[in-house]
């Protein structure tokens, strides 16, 4: 697992193991971390009210069973960021 911590999913995906049973690289003696982020972008010069609609929409999507099932099946870290926290996260990645 290329993260500082194990992923939260504890449902068994093989006969004996869940994603949560997979150790981090660091636990296994290799101290590397690598996170990627999938982001949604509006075109430049989009009105704020229109951006707000999409932030709201994606927030609602993140509450749906379809979304939650997808995140778990793909073993994606269930983190949702918006606004300043999202921008800050992008900034950190560009360093």
């Amino acid at each position: 697992m290329f993260d500082k911590e194990r992923i939260s999913y504890t449902t068994k995906v093989s006969e004996t193991q869940s994603w949560n049973d997979i150790p981090t690289c660091k636990e296994e003696g290799l101290d590397v971390q690598y996170l990627m982020l999938r982001a949604m972008f509006c075109p430049e010069k989009s009105a704020r009210s229109k951006q707000a609609f999409y932030v709201d929409l994606f927030q609602k999507i993140a509450q749906t069973p379809e979304y939650k099932e997808y995140m778990e099946k793909q073993a994606l870290k269930p983190v949702f960021l918006k606004g300043r926290r999202c921008s800050n996260s992008l900034k950190r990645m560009m360093r």
Binding site: D3, L35, K82
Partner: peptide, 10 residues
């Protein structure tokens, strides 16, 4: 322009 973000992959 970022409007939101869904998940970090592992």
């Amino acid at each position: 322009r970022p409007v939101g973000q869904c998940g970090r992959s592992k």
